[in-house]
């Protein structure tokens, strides 16, 4: 028996005792999620700040390093994440309208697009491994800008690595939620869990929106 104190409201929603009603409870949960997301923004923020400093110090080296990345694949990955964010938003909408099958399908689409992103990134990492672009392990760049290229790739692996970890976490959570929605665990009066997961997924998307130009689009002209 769960010892948590609370009550069921007139719509059959569980309301913990510290809240007046389900609406207040959901707003508190949303606020708490945003506070967590602020810590996520700052987690990636220090990496972006390091990137900004290094790029100011070594503009030529960063342009040369960025040309080693796969712009086409990076653009495709961005598009995939943007579509997956839309699918996630539509999944929450479907659940609010009590369209459980549609919500399950849209969640599955979101998770699959997340997986597709990870697979494409895996191919990128493999190519960089083949081209000896792994600082400290297998790095064969030479010339005046070699140290700056090495710095760029250090930041590249930290930023994209942690981002991919976040995508993987999202894929697992969304996959589990898809199963739970299919089993009827959520509905038009019980969708907070899904909505908060959507906030997380959109933030992971936003992080990538800034990663994309920083990693793939430097020094492409000329």
């Amino acid at each position: 028996m769960n010892a948590a104190a609370g009550r069921l409201d007139s719509a059959g929603r569980w309301v913990a005792e510290q809240f007046d009603d389900a609406v207040q409870q959901r707003e508190a949960a949303t606020l708490g999620m945003w506070v967590f997301l602020a810590t996520e923004i700052l987690f990636f923020g220090v990496l972006f700040a390091s990137y900004a400093v290094c790029r100011v110090l070594y503009p030529q080296g960063f342009a040369a390093a960025s040309r080693h990345t796969d712009m086409l694949l990076g653009t495709l990955e961005t598009a995939v994440l943007l579509v997956s964010s839309t699918a996630m938003a539509l999944a929450v909408r479907a659940l609010k309208l009590d369209a459980r099958r549609a919500a399950t399908a849209l969640l599955a689409v979101t998770a699959c697009l997340g997986l597709a992103f990870l697979v494409m990134h895996g191919f990128e990492y493999y190519r960089e491994y083949r081209e000896h672009l792994i600082p400290g392990i297998d790095f064969s760049q030479e010339g005046a800008a070699a140290r700056a290229v090495e710095l760029f790739f250090c930041l590249y692996y930290f930023i994209t690595g942690f981002h991919s970890l976040h995508v993987l976490t999202g894929v697992v959570i969304i996959g589990v939620l898809a199963l739970r929605v299919a089993r009827g665990a959520f509905g038009p009066q019980r969708y907070t869990t899904l909505e908060l997961t959507a906030l997380y997924w959109h933030l992971v998307d936003i992080v990538w929106i800034f990663v994309y130009p920083a990693i793939y689009l430097v020094g492409r002209a000329g």
């Binding site: 707003e27 945003w34 506070v35 997301l37 602020a38 923004i41 923020g45 972006f48 700040a49 900004a52």
Partner: peptide, 23 residues
């Protein structure tokens, strides 16, 4: 909620702006 969602970005803007002001 809007305020809370803006705060993370505001802190990040300060972090990057003040760091770059130095460099």
């Amino acid at each position: 909620t809007r305020l809370a969602s803006a705060l993370g970005f505001v802190w990040l803007a300060m972090l990057i702006a003040l760091t770059l002001l130095d460099f």
